[in-house]
Simulated scan of single mutants.
Amino acid sequence: MTYDAPPPGWDPQSQGQQPGYYQQPGYNPGYQPPLPGYYPPGYYGAPAPDHPQAVVVLILGVMSLVFCQLLGPVAWIMGGKARREIAESNGAIGGSGMVTAGWICGIVATAVILLAILFVVFAIIVGAVGSSQ
């Protein structure tokens, strides 16, 4: 199909094109690509790098629940320090989800080991009182 005459009301001078040229919808001849490093509105760029100890805190927290509750206080202390550093960075450091998960696992493991210690002490006291009678 050829176009011999432009459609009514079409001015080739205002469009900058020759008669009979089909313009694709959305084509903009004056478009310039954005500068490097420019992000359009709604695009926030690359995510912040994770805290260097985020994975360590998460692993210690999970291991303190599963294998050795003695790692619980270590995960709790390291997680608290890492959470503070992430909060003070104002978004420059990420990984708060992993750190928080490890921190909570450390708190739970510490509570479990304290309950176990209290149970053992209580059993020793009950055993000592029961055997003395």
Score class of each variant (00 low, 15 high):
residue 14 S to W: 05
residue 69 Q to N: 06
residue 55 V to R: 15
residue 104 I to T: 12
residue 46 A to L: 13
residue 58 L to K: 13
residue 73 P to D: 01
residue 14 S to R: 11
residue 50 D to I: 08
residue 117 I to E: 06
residue 101 A to K: 06
residue 85 E to N: 02
residue 72 G to E: 08
residue 35 L to H: 10
residue 69 Q to V: 02
residue 97 G to I: 03
residue 13 Q to G: 07
residue 67 F to P: 00
residue 118 L to H: 01
residue 78 M to D: 07
residue 79 G to W: 03
residue 79 G to F: 06
residue 39 Y to T: 05
residue 84 R to S: 05
residue 69 Q to C: 05
residue 24 Q to T: 00
residue 109 A to S: 06
residue 22 Y to R: 14
residue 47 P to K: 13
residue 127 G to K: 06
residue 93 I to V: 15
residue 78 M to N: 09
residue 93 I to L: 11
residue 121 V to R: 08
residue 32 Q to G: 03
residue 27 Y to D: 11
residue 83 R to T: 03
residue 117 I to H: 10
residue 38 Y to A: 04
residue 122 F to R: 12
residue 61 G to Q: 05
residue 27 Y to A: 07
residue 4 D to M: 01
residue 13 Q to M: 06
residue 124 I to Y: 08
residue 71 L to K: 07
residue 31 Y to P: 04
residue 89 S to N: 04
residue 115 L to I: 04
residue 126 V to A: 15
residue 53 Q to A: 13
residue 127 G to V: 06
residue 33 P to R: 06
residue 42 G to W: 10
residue 76 W to T: 09
residue 132 S to G: 13
residue 47 P to E: 15
residue 126 V to Q: 14
residue 3 Y to W: 12
residue 37 G to Y: 00
residue 65 L to T: 02
residue 129 V to I: 15
residue 128 A to I: 11
residue 96 S to D: 07
residue 113 I to H: 05
residue 70 L to C: 13
residue 132 S to L: 15
residue 61 G to W: 03
residue 78 M to I: 03
residue 86 I to N: 01
residue 47 P to G: 13
residue 84 R to Q: 09
residue 32 Q to T: 13
residue 133 Q to Y: 13
residue 130 G to N: 04
residue 125 I to L: 14
residue 27 Y to R: 03
residue 102 G to A: 10
residue 132 S to C: 12
residue 82 A to S: 07
residue 47 P to N: 14
residue 16 G to K: 01
residue 60 L to D: 12
residue 110 T to K: 00
residue 76 W to M: 15
residue 15 Q to H: 13
residue 40 P to S: 13
residue 42 G to V: 07
residue 18 Q to R: 12
residue 49 P to C: 03
residue 12 P to G: 00
